[in-house]
C-alpha cells in the first residue's frame, strides 16, 4: 500500500563525486517495497514544492536506502541533510521489476546513477536462485562495485573515459562478451536503454527498462509523467504507475 511516511535520516554520505547514499528510517515503506519501485521525497520548500522521484536502492525491515546524484537544487538540498533531519516521503510507488517464475539467468545493465535500483533487484534475484551477471557503464568514476562484489556478483565495468575497465559504453561491452541471458534488466540514461533495447531485440532476449520522466503527483493523477506507448492507443502511458519499469518494446525510447 502506498502511504506518506516521515522518518529520520540515519546516514547521508558522498560515495563518489556528487553521488550520495542516504539511509532513512521508514519501516512501513521499507517493508512494503520491491525492487524497481521508487519513492517521492518531499522537500517542503516553497521554491521546491514538487517531490523528487528517487528509486529504492535497498531496504530492510527498518530503513530505506536511496542513492542519488546532486544534479539540481532539489538533490543538492538533499545532499545537505544530516542525521536526525526529518524527511517526508510517499511510497512505495510504481510497478517494480517483474521476475518471471521460471527465470534462471538474468543480466543487469546499469548506466551511471541508474545503477542503484539494480542492487536491490540483484539481491532479490539471488535469493530466488537466479544466476545474475552485472554490467555497469559510467562516464569516468564507477559506483557500487564493491556492493555487487560482496553479493558474489562482481560487475563488469565500462567507462567512457577508459579510467576503469572496458573503454567505451556498456552496450559495446555487452556485445563483446556475448552474454546471452534469458532476460535483461536495465536502468540508466535513455540513450543507453535505447541501444540496449536494440541489441536485446537483435539477439532475441526480452528486456525490462526503468524509465524516467518529470513527475508531480507520483500516483497517476496529474498525467505529467507521459511516455510514448509503442502500442499507440493511447498514445501516452504513465511512468509513475504503468511503469517505471516497462518491457523495452512497450515504450518508444529515443536514442
Amino acid at each position: 500500500m502506498k502511504r506518506v511516511e516521515s522518518g529520520a535520516v540515519l546516514t547521508n554520505s558522498e560515495i563518489a563525486k556528487n553521488i550520495y547514499a542516504m539511509t532513512i528510517r521508514l519501516p512501513l515503506i521499507a517493508q512494503a517495497c520491491k525492487p524497481g519501485q521508487f519513492v517521492m521525497v518531499y522537500l517542503d520548500r516553497s521554491e521546491m514544492m514538487l517531490p523528487r522521484p528517487i528509486s529504492i536502492a535497498d531496504a530492510d525491515d527498518e530503513t530505506l536506502t536511496l542513492i542519488y546524484q546532486a544534479v539540481g537544487q532539489g538533490t543538492e538540498y538533499l545532499s545537505r541533510l544530516r542525521p536526525n533531519d526529518a524527511l517526508r516521503t510517499l511510497g512505495p510507488l510504481g510497478n517494480g521489476f517483474t521476475i518471471p517464475d521460471e527465470l534462471t539467468h538474468a543480466t543487469l545493465v546499469g548506466g551511471g546513477i541508474g545503477t542503484p535500483p539494480l542492487y536491490f533487484l540483484a539481491q532479490e534475484l539471488l535469493e530466488r536462485g537466479v544466476q545474475v551477471s552485472v554490467y555497469l557503464g559510467f562516464r569516468d568514476e564507477s559506483i557500487m562495485r564493491e556492493d555487487f562484489a560482496s553479493l558474489g556478483i562482481p560487475p563488469l565495468i565500462a567507462t567512457d573515459s577508459g579510467a576503469y575497465g572496458f573503454h567505451g559504453n556498456v552496450v559495446a561491452l555487452l556485445r563483446e562478451t556475448k552474454d546471452a541471458p534469458e532476460l535483461f534488466y536495465a536502468c540508466g540514461p535513455t540513450s543507453m536503454l535505447y541501444h540496449l533495447a536494440q541489441y536485446a531485440k537483435a539477439i532475441g532476449v526480452p528486456c525490462q527498462v526503468s524509465v524516467e520522466e518529470r513527475m508531480a503527483c507520483g500516483v497517476g493523477a496529474c498525467l505529467g509523467c507521459a511516455v510514448e506507448n509503442a502500442a499507440r492507443d493511447p498514445k501516452y502511458i504513465k511512468v509513475c504507475c504503468d511503469g517505471p519499469v516497462f518491457y523495452s518494446d512497450q515504450v518508444v525510447l529515443h536514442g
Binding site: S46, E47, M48, M49, L50, E213, R214, M215, A216, C222, L223, G224, C225, A226, V227, P234, K235, Y236
Partner: peptide, 12 residues
C-alpha cells in the same frame, strides 16, 4: 492524446 513530454516544470 495530450501533449508531448516534458509536461511539467517546477517554479517558485
Amino acid at each position: 492524446e495530450g501533449n508531448r513530454p516534458v509536461r511539467i516544470a517546477e517554479t517558485h
